[in-house]
Simulated scan of single mutants.
Amino acid sequence: MSALEFVTPPPGLSPHTSFSLDEVEGGGGLFTLTAADDPRVRLFAVDPGAVVDDYSPTLSDAHVADLGLAESADARVLVVARMTDEGIGVNLLAPVVINRRTGVAAQVILEGQDLPVRALLS
């Protein structure tokens, strides 16, 4: 388990900013993000390398500064996953970015990048 502190609440999860990140055993890169003060507030995230080829988002200078990232290796990127009528979808346009050293996190919107909000996994 890792403790995370979001710079602002993730969309739809206000006012929560403190979360735990837990890997789902046997989940192949699947994680849960659970609000520290309310375990009913939870979302699923996945390591994009486990489900999407060639995903390499570019963070803005503002995102890098907000997260205190000194180098690219400090960033851990996860994408939010959810069940839809069509199957499991991931949001590639708004990944969760975590500073591995500090636990500071944000769900960022990638500007100027042609990525889908809902990419269905096959």
Rank of each mutant, 00 (worst) to 15 (best):
M1C: 08
A3I: 05
L4I: 10
E5M: 12
F6C: 03
V7E: 09
T8I: 12
T8Q: 13
P9A: 10
P10E: 08
P10C: 04
P11H: 08
G12H: 01
L13H: 15
H16N: 13
T17Y: 03
T17D: 03
T17V: 15
S20M: 07
D22Q: 11
V24S: 09
E25P: 11
G27H: 04
G28M: 01
G29A: 07
F31N: 04
L33G: 01
A35K: 00
D37S: 13
P39N: 09
P39K: 11
R40A: 14
A45Q: 01
V46C: 08
D47W: 12
P48L: 00
P48H: 03
G49D: 14
A50I: 04
A50Y: 04
A50L: 03
V51K: 04
V51L: 00
V52T: 10
V52D: 04
V52P: 05
Y55T: 06
S56M: 10
S56K: 13
S56G: 14
T58S: 15
L59C: 08
S60W: 02
D61V: 14
D61Y: 02
D61F: 05
A62T: 15
V64T: 15
A65Y: 02
A65W: 03
A65E: 13
L67A: 06
G68D: 07
L69W: 01
A70N: 14
E71L: 04
S72E: 13
S72G: 10
D74A: 12
A75D: 00
A75Q: 00
V77G: 09
V77D: 09
V80F: 10
V80R: 06
V80P: 07
A81L: 15
A81V: 15
A81W: 05
M83Q: 12
E86G: 08
E86Q: 10
E86C: 04
G87C: 02
I88H: 03
I88T: 15
V90T: 11
V90C: 09
V90S: 05
V90Q: 02
L92R: 02
A94H: 00
V96F: 07
N99D: 05
R101W: 02
G103N: 00
G103L: 00
A106G: 00
V108F: 09
V108M: 12
L110P: 10
E111S: 15
E111Y: 15
G112S: 05
G112H: 05
G112T: 07
Q113S: 03
L115Y: 08
L115A: 08
R118H: 13
L121A: 12
S122R: 14
